[in-house]
Amino acid sequence: MATDPDAALMVAFQGGDETAFRSLFEKHGRAMVAFCHHFVRDGARAEELAQDVFLKVHRSAARYQPSARFKTFLYRIASNHCLNELRRGEYAARRAVESAEDGQGEPTDPDSLAGPAPTPEENMLATALGEAVEKLLGQLPEKQRAAFVLGRLEGLSYEEIADVLDTSISAVKSLVHRATVAAAAALAPYAADGKEALP
């Protein structure tokens, strides 16, 4: 695909250009860690999963079709890998423990978070929102979770999500809608006015 510079890099890598692969990793590697983190909520494991994804990209380069956007190809591998990870027993067990411990954890220290936040109140709101969303993601069914992360947090279009999850656009509409309704319920305590709405 001539308009997708990443696709051109992937084609160059298919032709044996290892520096093209390095460029793709440098461009998408860190974002991939964030994507995986939405699934496993563990920094070290998210890094391992992101590395696994790029090792798979390296191994399966020959199967890449230049007609597909590289981002779609990458997120398809990543979604399948993260969903498989979630299906492993240890995550199901961990989710059960986390559900039992709801509300008992230590509150996050706002100063420990990366990213600019103009005021302490906004910083605290962002932290609280992050925790609420992470908790929500742990409760969503697999496909809803993947559609929500891809659409709401990674900015993919419905068409791209359908491609990544290998499903129809109408199914994506339904998945994203149900996840967004769940998010509206989970974030309702913060929604009154935003800044003053910390519960």
């Binding site: 860190r30 964030a34 983190h37 939405h38 990366a114 936040a117 969303v133």
Partner: peptide, 8 residues
């Protein structure tokens, strides 16, 4: 308004 994901 979510905070950015933790850096690797």
């Amino acid at each position: 308004r979510l905070p950015p994901a933790p850096a690797p």
